[in-house]
Structures are given as C-alpha cells and as structure tokens.
C-alpha cells in the first residue's frame, strides 16, 4: 500500500483522537489570543448600553443542553450587562429543556452577583408552549399568556409586572435560539406585529441565516456561536467559558482546515496518477 493510500484510508478513530487532542491541549496550554469584537455583537451591546435604567429586557431561552456551551455564556454575559445597567429582566423559554438553564443563569447573576430581588428586578415565566402562536398572544397581553411564573406564583402579584402588560412595555427582546421555535418566530410573528427592538444570539449553525435580518433592520444585534459569546464576554469585561473555549476553537479549526487540504491534495495527486 502506497503512502497516499495509507493516508487516505486513515482509521477514523485516529482522526477522532486528533480532534480530542486539539480541544484538550489548549485547555492546559492556553494561547490567550486577542478576541476581536465584530459589528453585530457591538450593535447589541450598544443598544443595551443606551437603554434607560429600569427598562425591560426579555430574554427568551430557546435552547436546550446541546446549545448550552455556545448560548449559556452569552446568556450570562447579557444578564450581567442588563443588571449592571439596572435594567429589569424577564425570562421565558420556548424550549422546555432550556428553562432550568435560565433559572441557573438568573440564580448565578441576578441573585449571586448583583443581589437583585425577584419580582422587582427580574421575573422568570418558565416554559411557554405554542411557539409562534404564543408570541402573537404575548405581544398583545403578557399577563394572559403568563398567568403564573415558573414557580407557580400568580404573575399579577409581582410588582414588576404592574407596568409590563404588552409588547410596548418591553424595550428589547433577545432570543437565545438554536432552532424552531426560536428567533424565526420572534422575527416573523412578534416583531412583524409589534415592532420594537429584537436581537438574537444563535448557535453557530444558525447564525449565518440571520445576517439577512440584520441587514433589513429586523434585528438590532446578533451574537453568533461561541465566538460571539466570547466577544460579549470581552465587552462586559468578564472572561467566561466562551473566551476559554476560543483557544480550543483556534487549534481545532486549524486542524480541520489541515484535514480538508490534506484530503484535497490526496485527491488531486490520485487524479493526476490516473
């Protein structure tokens, strides 16, 4: 067997091993390469930064554990920014498996870091089924869709909700999304009817699709994947898991580009031989 054939028939488990090594090694030998902030992330930061104190930001947790490595760091950073600016935060989830992640983020940031008070500074509505249809109703009457919060407390009894009744009372919606229902539904069903500011944080797979909505002005910001989350971490000045992960991303990306080029070199050499 020639060297070319040997390389092209490389056992897939060896490839698997190289990927694991490419991710693990930078965890022990960090490169700490600088992270550039891109315009879509900066735009979202600027929108939140310019909101008057006590404005309401709705964060929709539209992801599950498989989206957490990319979206949870973004959720934490956005919450940090909101509470640092004394904004009020509403959390709900269009994906049931994401709700505990929202609870955990609020516990860590709102309660743990900022000492904010539940029902006054933030409220968690929990999971809301119905996707698009729920969003149409939500914009018209928040209290109708969210009768009880995540813990079963009647929403009418929470003082923060006295002046939050409909879409007009919400200054910014951010959909942390990894699929359907998610940002698509927020854009088509909620923003199209009620306008206002809408932004999204996406897993990297979904992000390319949302540049068109950024260009058309339907979105005021876009955080794409772990890189976007790392950019937001840089903007709020707090190194988190996304920033740590960028070194692993760098090395793995180089490895995969290497594999693509190697595969093509072998392909061209074999083609020339034939």
């Amino acid at each position: 067997m020639s060297i070319l054939e040997r390389i092209s028939n490389l056992d897939r488990r060896i490839i698997f091993l190289t990927v694991a090594i490419a991710v693990i090694v930078p965890l022990f030998l960090p490169l700490r390469l600088p992270i550039e902030v891109t315009p879509p992330v900066q735009q979202l930061y600027d929108v939140i930064d310019s909101m008057p104190a006590r404005s309401v930001v709705l964060i929709s947790i539209d992801y599950d554990p498989s989206g957490a490595p990319e979206l949870q760091p973004a959720t934490l950073s956005i919450m940090r920014h909101c509470f640092a600016k004394d904004l009020r935060v509403l959390v709900l989830g269009l994906w049931a498996p994401g709700v505990p992640l929202g609870v955990s983020a609020l516990e860590e940031v709102a309660v743990g870091e900022f000492g904010k008070e539940y029902g006054v500074d933030f409220v968690n509505f929990g999971y809301k089924p119905g996707g698009a249809v729920t969003l149409v109703n939500l914009g018209r009457d928040v209290h109708d869709v969210c009768r009880q919060d995540h813990n079963g407390t009647p929403v009418d009894s929470l003082s923060m909700m006295d002046d939050v009744r409909a879409a007009n009372d919400i200054g910014l919606v951010i959909s942390m999304s990894m699929g359907i229902p998610g940002s698509d539904q927020w854009i088509w069903y909620y923003h199209a009817r009620y306008r206002g500011n809408l932004a999204t944080a996406q897993t990297a797979i979904g992000a390319p699709k949302y540049y068109q909505y950024l260009q058309s002005g339907q979105l005021v910001g876009l955080i794409g994947g772990m890189k976007g989350a790392a950019e937001y971490e840089r903007l709020v000045g707090r190194r988190g898991l996304a920033t740590v992960g960028m070194d692993s991303q760098s090395i793995s990306h180089l490895l995969i580009i290497g594999f693509v080029l190697l595969g093509n070199i072998i392909y061209w050499l074999e083609k020339r031989k034939k």
Binding site: P69, E70, T203, A204, I205, K227, L241, S252, H253
Partner: peptide, 13 residues
C-alpha cells in the same frame, strides 16, 4: 460555522 458549533459542544463536554 458548523465546525465552530460542533467543536463548541465537544469543548463543553
């Protein structure tokens, strides 16, 4: 972007 997404999940675990 898909590469970034997949590596993120592996990094997380």
């Amino acid at each position: 972007y898909t590469i970034m997404a997949r590596i993120s999940l592996l990094f997380g675990r």
